[in-house]
Amino acid sequence: MSMRVIALMNEKGGSGKSTLAINIATALHRRGDQRVVLVDADPQGTARDWRAASPEGKELPPVVALDRPQMLASLPTLAADIAVIDTPAKAEAMAAAVVRIANVALVVIQPSGADVWASAATVKLIKSKLDVGGHIDAAFLVNRASSSTRLSKLIQGGEWNEYGFDQLDTMVGNRTAFAQALTDGVSVYDLADGQAKAEIDFVIQELEGAGWL
């Protein structure tokens, strides 16, 4: 089986791509039936810092730094069945390189106009690949949502989405467990917030249901 490449993307910083990449990769790794690698394509190195902070003996995926566009050419040589890529913000050359190799692009947006507007650059890259006959599955993934805010409800409703891409039904909540796990070098599967774990599980179930994983 060839490697499946899942990229978490958005040109805007601060949307939570690293947090989602870390927890999705950890969830897949803990299943134990496939080899999973977390690729840190961000020169800022958040995923690497997270892994360096991990306590001994935690069941976490390996992190590989491929933080320049030309380095991504070595991705197929990694001993993995699934690669989850954490991408940088404001790095069009890297984003274009990631889109070229990705099977799945999850465009991460927070419930804000700024995130929606910033996603247009990533959407353009994905559509460019499709326009020349390439294949990539793409969907929006709403992060840091709150059920109590009007903006979150509007984003969930999807009326803003004029890009022609799917939006995952699962919205990941604005939970302190995600920030805590990132700081402690662990995942939400190591903490007590059952809802945070369930949300990551639901994201993966949606990807599997669509035949993307």
Rank of each mutant, 00 (worst) to 15 (best):
I136Q: 06
M1S: 05
A89N: 13
E159F: 01
A47L: 08
A192G: 11
S74K: 14
A177V: 11
A65Y: 12
A79E: 15
E159L: 00
G211K: 07
H29Q: 06
T26S: 12
G32K: 04
G133W: 11
V37K: 15
L66H: 14
A95W: 04
V39Y: 14
G185V: 07
P62Y: 01
A102T: 14
D193V: 12
R51P: 10
R4Y: 00
K129G: 02
A47W: 10
R150Q: 07
I24L: 15
L66D: 05
V104D: 09
M1L: 02
N103M: 02
A7G: 02
P43F: 14
A121S: 12
Y163E: 12
G133L: 07
D40F: 12
R4E: 01
V64E: 11
I204D: 03
E206M: 06
V98N: 01
A41K: 06
G14P: 00
D131K: 12
K129L: 10
D131Q: 12
T26I: 11
E59R: 09
R175Q: 08
R68G: 05
K124I: 06
V63S: 05
A105C: 15
V107F: 07
F178W: 05
L38M: 11
G158V: 04
W117T: 01
K90N: 15
N161D: 00
N161M: 05
G209Q: 03
E59P: 01
V64C: 06
L125C: 03
D33P: 08
V5R: 02
A96R: 15
E56M: 10
K17W: 03
M171K: 03
D193E: 11
A41L: 03
G211N: 06
A138F: 00
G211F: 00
V37I: 15
A102L: 10
Q156D: 00
I126S: 06
R4V: 00
T183N: 13
S2W: 04
V37P: 08
R35Y: 09
P61W: 11
I200M: 05
G113C: 05
K58T: 09
N161Q: 02
I22D: 01
L151R: 03
V172H: 03
V203S: 07
H135Q: 15
L141W: 00
R51N: 11
V5T: 12
A95M: 14
M1W: 05
G173M: 08
G211R: 06
L8Q: 01
A95D: 12
I85W: 13
K153N: 09
G185H: 08
D67W: 13
I6D: 02
P62K: 03
P76H: 12
N10D: 03
V186I: 14
E208Q: 12
F202I: 12
R175V: 14
A196N: 10
W50L: 07
Y163D: 06
R100K: 14
G13L: 00
V63G: 01
S112F: 10
V108W: 11
D49Y: 09
A96N: 11
T122K: 02
A73S: 15
S18N: 08
A65V: 14
K153Q: 12
N10G: 01
N103E: 14
